[in-house]
Design a protein around this nucleic acid. Structure first.
Lengths: 220, 220
DNA sequence: ATCTGTGAATTGATTCACAGCC
DNA sequence: GGCTGTGAATCAATTCACAGAT
């Protein structure tokens, strides 16, 4: 398969750059809320603990958004980043697993304002099915394929116990989901072309203790 | 020919390696639970979608744990990784913010079996203070410094609203906490020497949509 | 005078490839 | 034959440093 070097939307964007763009967008939204009109890469870098050169280089993959001697227009750059990230539309999501975690997700107010909307919720447990959380009625997982083929979503959120998670993810992929946010602590896999992100506080803790273990015990 | 310093570990460990070790440990625990005694880097790599060479190289920073022609003894390697990561002890944590998210954290059963124990919970809101979740009674944040100086913790978990998060983190640092797990969606900072990890599902979603936006709409 | 955008240089991470051992 | 451990080679990411714009 040939990749053309010419073309409209140019070359490959380094993976880490894509991971940083949402960070930039968030910082810009903060500045915008404060009424700041212009920001330099140095100032943004201070906010985010990232070098100014990195910010400029990252942005340069997508275009030239700044003015020499001045900096970036906050609103304009934020607008452009939202476009680049695809945040100029609403994304529909399905949640699988409505236990304690799943309920917290359904009732979490942080997704909707960013354009991420949970439109279906499923659970295996008959106890949860039929209940309503955050305005959504929980359906049985047995209806997953049927519901999603009638009313597709872009993203799946997996909040089931570890032992069931990979199978649920496979179902979601079969239903045409193209991205999965997985909260289950397992080595999860998706086929090529289906994005996957893990939310795993235990892994985060375990990588911090590596740095803690050699330090003196908490004392003053 | 320079030889490696014998039995020492002051060699500098790449940051990414430390982030992968908990992944290895988890996969090994899975194998162990299945009764598997030996594993090769190729098999582990299959489980985790990591190249065998990377696994061998990562482990080589810490010692020689395998047998040529055979592989790694699952139990022994897991044991060593747990030691390296500091998982051979219990870590004490304080939770700040007992809203919906904080409650889900207190009632989450996944920390304790891994040796991470929440021993104090704080909230600003008088409504939450005094209530008990997961066996812990919520105290007012005003007592944070007093309680933590009498009974220190290693790690702080921040689950307060965004506007309050940085101030809470600063307090925790003053209380001698050496690592923070932050759930608030802000560009958070800790001083040099205080580890920080962010749990941020919205950022994860926003970096996935970058890849989704150019694809055909969900259709079947 | 200031700050962007970007090739070039550098630093860091991953993969290769093979000697050595089981 | 199979697999580890590891220098060397490759590939990727970051930082430097400066020309050019305002």
């Amino acid at each position: 398969m040939a990749r053309k070097p010419e073309g409209t939307r140019p070359a490959k964007i380094p993976h880490v750059v894509v991971l940083r763009l949402p960070l930039y967008a968030r910082a810009l939204a903060l500045l915008q809320a404060n009424g700041q009109e212009v920001v330099s890469s140095a100032e943004l870098g201070d906010m985010l603990r990232v070098t100014p050169a990195q910010i400029r280089k990252d942005l340069s993959y997508f275009g030239r958004f700044g003015k020499q001697g001045r900096g970036y227009n906050v609103t304009r750059l934020l607008e452009r980043l939202r476009l680049i990230l695809g945040l100029d539309r609403e994304w529909r999501m399905a949640l699988i697993g409505v236990g304690k975690l799943g309920r917290a997700i359904l009732e979490y107010g942080g997704f909707a304002p960013q354009g991420f909307r949970v439109v279906h919720a499923f659970d295996l447990d008959a106890g949860a099915v039929g209940q309503t959380f955050g305005g959504l009625t929980v359906r049985p997982v047995s209806e997953l394929e049927q519901v999603l083929s009638a009313d597709p979503v872009d993203i799946g959120i997996v909040a089931v116990p570890a032992f069931a998670a990979q199978k649920v993810m496979d179902s979601l992929v079969r239903c045409g989901v193209r991205a999965i946010l997985n909260y289950a602590p397992i080595p999860a896999h998706t086929p090529q072309g289906v994005e996957l992100r893990q939310i795993d506080p235990v892994l985060a803790l375990q990588s911090m203790t590596f740095h803690l273990k050699s330090l003196a015990p908490p004392a003053e």
